[in-house]
């Protein structure tokens, strides 16, 4: 006789449809905000990792950053590289799509504007998230075209899968327009993170009178440090401190 799986007859058995749950989750603004928080963590994690990689340009060994680039581009790492790229792309798409949907809903929630409206505690950074976001996104596209695909300035290679990062960065940042746009975008990124780095905790429900004020300060410090680190590279190139 064949063994038949026992039916669950416990009182606590309930129909749990994961698809229903996911739909209900994303339908809710709180769910969309949680999506923005989680994708935000992923993106800011990448930003910090990317910055740490970039800071190798200050190494006393001028070839250090090129060795790091060759390591990343090594064909044996291709799977990991493309895996990370796809995950980041998915995070960017989810972050943007949910923010646009929330923005649309929020705009419709107040069809008639106030004649006079004050912003009591809202920081400039929080008020301009919808401006800093798209500009940083445009910058990311510019940055990829500039230093990954070489569509803006021709890129040098040392060998196959070995980009000459040092040359490409220095020659790019010697152009004041390019450097200016990088610095501008990094300041906006700093503002975006100034609000977003704290906000993501609130969105997933982490708030405590003992820790929230420290969390806000910590978020501001991290945002400023990221901006200083990133802006230092074009400034150092233009000042002639980093050369090819």
């Amino acid at each position: 006789m064949q063994y038949r799986r026992k039916q669950d007859i416990h009182m606590s058995a309930v129909a749990i449809n994961p698809l229903n749950r996911a739909v209900r989750f994303y339908e809710a603004p709180i769910g969309k905000k949680a999506v923005m928080a989680v994708t935000g963590v992923m993106l800011v994690g990448y930003v910090i990792g990317h910055l740490l990689g970039n800071l190798q340009i200050y190494s006393s060994d001028p070839q250090q950053i090129n060795r790091y680039a060759a390591f990343l581009h090594n064909p044996s790492n291709a799977l990991a590289l493309w895996g990370v790229r796809l995950i980041l792309l998915a995070a960017v798409v989810l972050h943007i799509v949910s923010s646009v949907q929330l923005w649309q809903q929020n705009r419709e929630a107040r069809p008639l504007r106030y004649y006079k409206k004050a912003d009591v505690p809202t920081s400039y950074a929080a008020r301009t998230m919808l401006w800093s976001g798209p500009i940083v996104a445009a910058f990311v596209i510019f940055h990829v075209l500039h230093l990954t695909t070489g569509s803006i300035l021709p890129l040098h290679d040392i060998g196959p899968n070995m980009p000459d990062v040092r040359y490409n960065v220095v020659s790019g940042f010697q152009n004041y327009w390019v450097s200016g746009f990088y610095i501008f975008a990094m300041i906006l990124l700093c503002m975006h993170l100034y609000h977003g780095l704290w906000s993501m905790f609130q969105s997933v429900g982490i708030s405590h009178p003992r820790y929230t004020s420290k969390l806000k300060k910590g978020a501001a410090i991290v945002a400023i440090l990221i901006a200083i680190g990133n802006c230092s590279i074009p400034i150092a190139v233009m000042a002639g401190l980093v050369t090819y």
Partner: peptide
């Protein structure tokens, strides 16, 4: 609308 965590 939904919350954008700004505290107004």
């Amino acid at each position: 609308g939904s919350c954008t965590n700004i505290g107004e």
